[in-house]
Write a protein that binds this DNA or RNA. Structure first.
Length: 806
RNA sequence: GCGGGCGUGGCGGAAUGGCAGACGCGCCAGACUUAGGAUCUGGUGCCUUACGGCGUAUGAGUUCAAAUCUCUUCGCCCGCACCA
């Protein structure tokens, strides 16, 4: 036989099978709503100019394994893909090279799909979405209008995070360590009129929803922390000579008797309102200016050293005891949280303690149990109230309840819940995004574009440069900007800011359910059938961005009756990063980037997929190893060569029944837990076992091919045909293991003496604890004991015998 | 500072409290070869000629039995960071 002809040549068979899958449309989800469904989702990529990264296939292969396995288990599977194609890189490229962003984007998209196809994912390509397609962003705009209609979108002038390099505003979630998440430039504060989304209104729902869904605990914790719920009380303090009371927020209303001074944020508006009554207002101005000059980063980094200014002639009155206390300003109190003012209880708050120590403020201990000479006593579980009037003798918990009742009754304050979460800054002063569908009319004010006029299409402009003034490039398009008011027909101008990249990705999984619908974003029936997403895999980096935003949108859409379920994703998992061979993050500048195309060329798509799943624990960061990848190719070569030495027997040989069935069990279970590395190791062991038994029978090989096919689909399809089987591997039923075959007659167990391994013996597998007594007479065991006196016998069926001797 | 996670051969990593190091890489030896960066066979934690001993960052503890549970110390990673 011609050996050359029989060699495993992935480049040929992979192209061939990709063609067959596409022609037959075998991976297209059926719009048949009576079948049991399974919706697998991966984060759709941003089609960057660099092409696919080796990190993308790690997620896509993992979910491809699940999707293929589910089909073989009889589910109607939806495993879609699309492109999240708005974004800055295409725009920056356009600025540099004077090419329209849509042209670059379409080129990149074509390249991405070609790369994805070469990896043999079982995506339903008939449902592709593209967030930059007007027929798609029409519905992104439509959702925005619903948010607007329901009071969840508003325009407000406020300090925002401004990236001077991108010349664009950023959401809080996009600022990392005081720097722009995208470009790394230092973010500055800038007052701007911005579109905001009231995600804070969903703080509680975003926390509650986490209880019923299967997300890894780390993600739930991170989301909860980001939302940052705290329960406390608001209390009004009268200020001598001022008209209004000063409202503060505290989580420790129980310590109200210990308040020895107040602190207001330097930006607090009541300061200006009462500047005549502040003896040293010029100091306030100076302090405020100094604070404003600090970047947010400095303000938090240099935070430990407290600064502040005491307001001369200003005294607040503690409502519980009428005590007059001084008022300070300090930048450790943030205008953006709570009420922008606090009561300071230095004896029981670390920050107040530091401040008081520095400026010599009075300390009053109101919870006994600590040593306030040394540090603030902040324990709320123990301790008894003292120096606190009617609260004396209570526990902290009791005191909290009592004081809130008191405050409410007297009208001094009430219970209050606060969130760290801020509203979502939704405007971007850039070109390549969805236009925000509103116009401004002199007479009618801000008017939404009627739904019938959607989409508001992005016009063609000549210049994409962002401006230093903070205006979108769209502002120069006078013929587009000037329009008529849908309300009164008078002169109006369009909103020129665009939406952030997170807009299109906040609902794309809904569009996949019914991607070509032009009446609705998706039909009710399609949504009812497919939603929610059964399993969503993606990166950890999106925990407080995409994952939080899309949950918010979906909860809102559920509230207005537009989607059938409240939570979009039933289960969420995350893959680890693939690092360069040197263990560092892959990047062009480090020169350690592995190009997927090169890998496919060298070892084939199947070996590439196999290696990405085998390289280590799925959720862990792992460095790439070219040798390791080659090893996976070698394994596939070995699988391929099983065809050269097929054993003529029929069925599964008796001596292989255990190996075959335990492999089925292992792969079935491990795939579900995303422990692909051990599932593959089990298949490797099976192949080794087959070789040491002279090769595989056709039936043994068939089972191996079915088990391996979700990971390495091309080679399995090809071999399936070559050994003369009917149909395709991908339409086979997922195998079940035979429980009986896993039960052995005889097992080898370890024998320990005093916990130390002394040898192994073969015993009947059915032996129980009671039978084990007889092992004392076993000659091998006797030898190990060397005549010592037996004190105790521990027998673990099928595993070991431990003999405790004197 | 707070919260979470992790630490196992030369490397990636396996191990329901029950035989540590599965599987793969690398390495060593051999076979087949004109040749080998192909393939096959065997070996491969450390110390020891051997018997045997020691081994899962560290030190203690619980247990018949600990990589696994508890506490201590050290190191690394991730999140949050004046949130009152």
């Amino acid at each position: 036989m011609d050996e050359q002809k029989n060699a495993y040549r992935p480049s040929e068979i992979e192209k061939k099978w990709q063609g067959i899958w596409e022609e037959t449309g075998c991976f297209e989800a059926k719009q048949e709503f009576d079948k049991k469904k399974y919706y697998c989702l991966v984060e759709f990529p941003y089609p960057s100019g660099q092409g696919l990264h080796v990190g993308h296939p790690r997620s896509y292969t993992a979910m491809d394994i699940i999707a293929r396995k589910r089909r073989m288990e009889g589910y109607n599977v939806l495993y879609p893909i699309g492109m999240d194609a708005f974004g800055l890189p295409a725009e920056n490229y356009a600025i540099k090279n004077h090419v329209h962003p849509s042209i670059v984007t379409q080129q990149n998209i074509a390249h991405f799909y070609q790369q994805l196809r070469s990896l043999g994912f079982s995506f339903d390509y008939s449902r592709k979405v593209d967030t930059t397609d007007p027929s798609y962003y029409k519905w992104t705009q439509w959702i925005f209008l619903q948010l607007l209609k329901n009071g969840l979108a508003y325009k407000a002038e406020m300090p925002i995070n401004w990236c001077p390099s991108c010349k664009c505003g950023l959401a809080n979630e996009e600022v990392v360590d005081g720097k722009c998440e995208r470009c790394g430039a230092e973010v500055v504060r800038r007052i701007k009129k911005q579109w905001m989304l009231r995600i804070t209104a969903y703080g509680q729902k975003l926390i509650d929803g986490l209880d019923d869904i299967d997300f890894i605990e780390k993600v739930k914790t991170q989301q909860r922390n980001w939302i940052g719920k705290s329960e406390g009380a608001e209390v009004d303090f009268a200020i001598k000579g001022w008209n209004e009371t000063l409202r503060i927020y505290t989580t420790r209303p129980d310590t109200l008797f210990g308040a020895t001074y107040m602190v207001m944020s330097p930006e607090h508006p009541m300061l200006d309102e009462n500047k005549d009554k502040i003896g040293n207002f010029s100091d306030v101005i100076a302090y405020r200016e100094a604070a404003a000059r600090k970047s947010d980063f400095e303000r938090t980094e240099l935070a430990k050293d407290k600064t502040g200014v005491k307001l001369e002639g200003v005294f607040a009155i503690n409502p519980v005891n009428g005590k007059e206390i001084p008022v300070w300003i300090s930048d450790y109190v943030l205008m953006s949280y709570g009420t922008g003012a606090i009561m300071a209880v230095p004896a029981h708050d670390t920050r107040d303690y530091e401040f008081a120590k520095k400026f010599g403020c009075e300390l009053i201990e109101v919870v006994a149990g600590g040593d306030i000479e040394k540090e603030a006593y902040t324990d709320i579980a123990e301790g008894t109230m003292i120096n606190s009037g009617f609260l004396n003798g209570m526990s902290v918990k009791e005191a909290k309840k009592a004081i809130i009742e008191f405050l409410t009754e007297k009208g001094y304050g009430q219970k209050k819940v606060n969130f760290k979460l801020r509203d979502w800054v939704f405007s971007r002063q850039r070109y390549w995004g969805e236009p925000i569908p509103v116009v401004f009319c002199e007479k009618c004010g801000c008017v939404p574009v009627p739904e019938s006029e959607l989409p508001v299409v992005l016009p063609n402009v000549e210049k994409y440069e962002p401006t230093d003034s903070g205006e979108s490039p769209l502002a120069h398009m006078t013929e587009w900007v000037n329009t008529t008011c849908p309300c009164c027909g008078g002169k109006a101008t369009r909103e020129t800011d665009t939406m952030p990249q997170w807009a299109g990705s906040s609902w794309y999984f809904l569009r996949y359910c019914d991607p070509t619908n032009d009446k609705e974003f998706a039909s009710k029936e399609a949504l009812k059938y497919w939603m929610n997403v059964d399993w969503y895999n993606g990166g950890m980096e999106h925990t407080t961005l995409h994952l939080l935003y899309s949950r918010f949108w979906h909860l809102f859409l559920h509230d207005i009756g537009a989607v059938p379920c409240s939570e979009p994703y039933q289960k969420r998992t995350s893959q680890g990063m693939i690092l360069g061979t040197n263990g560092e993050k892959m990047s062009k500048s480090r020169g350690n980037v592995i190009n997927p195309d090169d890998v496919v060329k060298q070892i084939g798509a199947d070996a590439f997929r196999l290696y990405e799943m085998f390289m280590g624990a799925f959720d862990q960061a792992i460095p790439w190893s070219t040798d390791g990848a080659n090893g996976c190719r070698r394994f596939l070569d070995r699988v391929w060569r099983l065809m050269d030495s097929l054993v003529p027997q029929k069925g599964i040989r008796k001596e292989l029944a255990f190996a075959v069935n335990s492999t089925i069990k292992k792969v079935t279970e491990d795939d579900e837990k995303m422990k692909f590395n051990t599932a593959i190791a089990a298949m490797m062991s099976l192949v080794n076992e087959l070789y040491s038994n002279g090769g595989a029978t056709r039936d043994e090989l068939k089972i191996l091919l079915v088990l391996l096919s979700p990971v390495a689909p091309h080679i399995c399809e090809e071999m399936w045909k070559l050994i003369g089987c009917d149909g395709y591997v991908h339409e086979q039923k997922w195998p079940e293991y035979d429980e009986k075959a896993l039960v052995l007659d005889e097992v080898e167990i370890a024998v320990q003496v005093n916990g130390k391994l002394r040898g192994r013996i073969r015993i009947p597998a059915s032996m129980t604890k009671d039978d084990a007594e007889s092992l004392k007479e076993n000659s091998e065991v006797k030898e190990m004991l060397a005549g010592k006196e037996i004190k105790k016998l521990i027998f673990v069926p099928g595993r070991l015998l431990n003999i405790v001797v004197a």
